[in-house]
Amino acid sequence: MTYQPPFKITATILSLVEEIGEALGRMQAVELADSRLRLHRINRIKTIQASLEIEGNTLNLDQVTAVLDGKRVLAQPRELQEVRNAFAAYEAMSQWSPDDERDLLTAHGLLMAGLVDELGCYRSGSVGVHGAQGVIHVAPQASRVPGLMGQLLQWLAETDEHPLIVSTVFHYEFEFIHPFQDGNGRMGRLWQSLILSRWRSVFANMPVESLIRDARQDYYAALNACNQVGESTRFVEFMLEIIFRALQSASSTEQESGQVTEQVKRLLSELRGKSRPARALMQALDLKHRPNFFYHYLQPALQQGLVEMTRPDTPRARNQQYRLTELGRSVAESWK
């Protein structure tokens, strides 16, 4: 191995690697984490929506879910295509090897189908990254891209660094090279998830992109700072913090969903796929005593964020109904 991406192992990086390892341990039975975290579909959708929103797609979580369920959504054709492509790419992720250039190009072909001219191949022209104040990064010349990507993939195949560090360094170097005509941001995030999933399968469905979206200014600031100094240390620190927060969030969700009472479980089962008024829910649950329904079924579900009102601004509205939240749907799906 001759190429070594420039970065430093700092005390912050070592601490975060240790904290992430401990967080994985607290989640118990990491090899079974996919089922324990109830992540597969709901977090896959979160990941797709967040990654696309970072790139300017305006569809919200409910709209993305509707698109993937085959329902009609009024939106720009390009945005709908981006959603379908992203889902296809993330679903195919388990088939790919992170250091295989053919798989990288195949992934770009899936992710950007119908969206760019140069599909599944490296760019033939110049590209730059634009910010509020103009061009903030000019990527290497197109003629250099195959060689740079070859070096980076070889390093990925041969390095002995910790997978957490490797995935993040690769992410930064990939964005610096900007090897494709378009789709570099979403490809970089997809490939980091792929690298991490080869280390711990839980990362295949961990919505790290949601936290990146929420901190997108810091995300771009970390990338730009690294571009200026010519090494990726700050970006590694930033992304490890994001990964740690994602694990904390997933662990918290698991704990909350694991405390659901039998009464609340029955309520969630009755609300699958529809919204219903309180009276109809009581009838379906064969309950006669209204206070019992509210105190033992409805209120706990509302407090845990599993159920929400259709008219939250007017809680006592005569036409008030109740429906599952995003979290409620994910918890209910896990019992099937």
Score class of each variant (00 low, 15 high):
Y295F: 13
R311N: 13
R329S: 14
L281P: 04
H296N: 15
R316I: 07
E333S: 06
L285C: 08
G328N: 03
K274E: 11
T325C: 09
L268S: 07
S275I: 00
L268P: 05
R290L: 12
Q304L: 14
M282F: 07
S334E: 05
E308Y: 01
V307I: 06
Q299A: 12
S275K: 06
Q321H: 01
S275R: 05
A317P: 02
L327P: 03
R311T: 12
A284K: 11
N292I: 04
Y322I: 01
L287W: 09
H289W: 05
F294E: 13
Q303S: 14
P312N: 02
L327C: 03
L268E: 07
T310Y: 00
F293M: 10
G328D: 05
Y297P: 06
K336P: 00
E326F: 12
M309W: 00
R323C: 09
S269W: 11
L281M: 10
R272D: 11
E270M: 15
D286R: 14
L324T: 06
L302K: 09
R276P: 00
P291T: 02
Q303P: 02
K274H: 08
Q304E: 08
L285G: 07
R329N: 12
Y322K: 00
W335L: 04
Q304C: 03
K288V: 11
H296P: 03
S334M: 03
L267C: 10
K288I: 07
Q320W: 01
L327Q: 13
L281C: 06
S275E: 10
N292W: 07
T310C: 05
Y297F: 15
G305V: 08
A278M: 03
Q283E: 15
P277W: 01
L267I: 08
P277T: 04
K288L: 13
T314F: 03
R276I: 12
F293R: 08
R279D: 12
K274S: 10
E333T: 04
G273A: 08
E333Q: 12
P277M: 02
Q283A: 14
A317V: 03
R318I: 13
S269P: 00
Q283L: 14
L302N: 03
R276M: 13
D313C: 01
P291S: 03
A317K: 05
S334G: 09
V307C: 02
Q321C: 02
S330N: 04
M309K: 03
L287R: 09
R329D: 13
S334A: 14
E270C: 15
P312Y: 02
T314Q: 11
Y295T: 15
L287E: 09
A278D: 01
D286Q: 15
A332R: 06
W335G: 02
Y322S: 02
L268Q: 10
T310V: 03
R329W: 13
Q303C: 05
L306G: 04
Q320M: 09
M309F: 00
L267P: 07
L324H: 07
E270S: 14
